[in-house]
Design a protein around this nucleic acid. Structure first.
Lengths: 137, 137
DNA sequence: GATCATTTGCGAACGGTTCGCATCTTGGAT
DNA sequence: ATCCAAGATGCGAACCGTTCGCAAATGATC
């Protein structure tokens, strides 16, 4: 998902009605980085659109999530954080001191998770792996 | 933590004041099984004590958690679930259909998590690993 | 048993998220 | 370009799990 344009195009293809607010939220998600929560997205969006409510941010994120265009993570700060879907799969390491979020992917862990689920008699449909740590000195 | 008695004894050692309500909650945690949430603990406790509020359950669980005697998990149903601490470390596989929670432990995954954190320049202080799946037919 | 810090129940508050509703906007059809 | 139905928006209230404030009750220590 390189550009706002292609994101908007995908919305159209998926039958998601486009409004001024939604375009702004799309831009914030595509051009922003990291794993913002709804409040941060709202703040960024408000910067470009003077008439956008937090409720609309939540509603739009839900629409995008249900369309598979955005991924929602319930992080342990008690809020949901959002990121663009379609990027390579990864998990998260969360810096307990700064709150910084580092992405990583380990094929070996992914493989093991499959194996464990299978061993327990389950078909894996998803997983959540978060590491918490502090910078090593 | 085999018995309610030893749990109570540990409370005394740790300076946790014992009340009727706390004894009942201790019993529910020690003799119950699984990963109940506060509401379920409250329901079980109310069965043995006719004067126990949900607020007390939360307060007691917090005391026990802070004392390291109970572990709190924020599962994706939006509630916190509790289990006795001191048992061997494990992670959880959650049945997306029934809500059943299966415990597992994989030393290899534990080792990999350490290695990943280190590789990213962090000292691991904790982790959360949940697998979601459905029964394989 | 008296004392005093702690704990309790109650109901209100909290924080993130969702909802209800009246109003406004969008996008397809004309 | 204009109209219209379907759908989106802002606002504030509601929601839900959890926490808090307070006056009353209880437990550990003497």
């Amino acid at each position: 998902m390189a550009s706002v344009e292609s994101f908007i195009a995908e919305c159209r293809i998926k039958g998601i009605k486009l409004t001024g607010q939604r375009r702004v939220i799309a831009q914030v998600m595509v051009e922003g980085q990291g794993h913002p929560n709804a409040e941060q997205i709202h703040a960024d969006a408000a910067h470009q659109h003077d008439r956008i409510s937090l409720a609309t941010v939540y509603r739009t994120l839900r629409v995008l999530r249900d369309a598979g265009m955005v991924i929602e993570h319930a992080f342990p700060d008690g809020r949901c954080h959002y990121e663009l879907a379609g990027r390579p799969h990864h998990d998260h390491l969360i810096d307990k001191e700064s709150g910084a979020i580092v992405e990583f992917c380990d094929p070996e862990i992914e493989r093991l998770q499959q194996a464990i689920a299978l061993r327990l008699g389950y078909r894996l449909t998803g997983h959540r792996l978060e590491l918490y740590g502090v910078r090593a000195r």
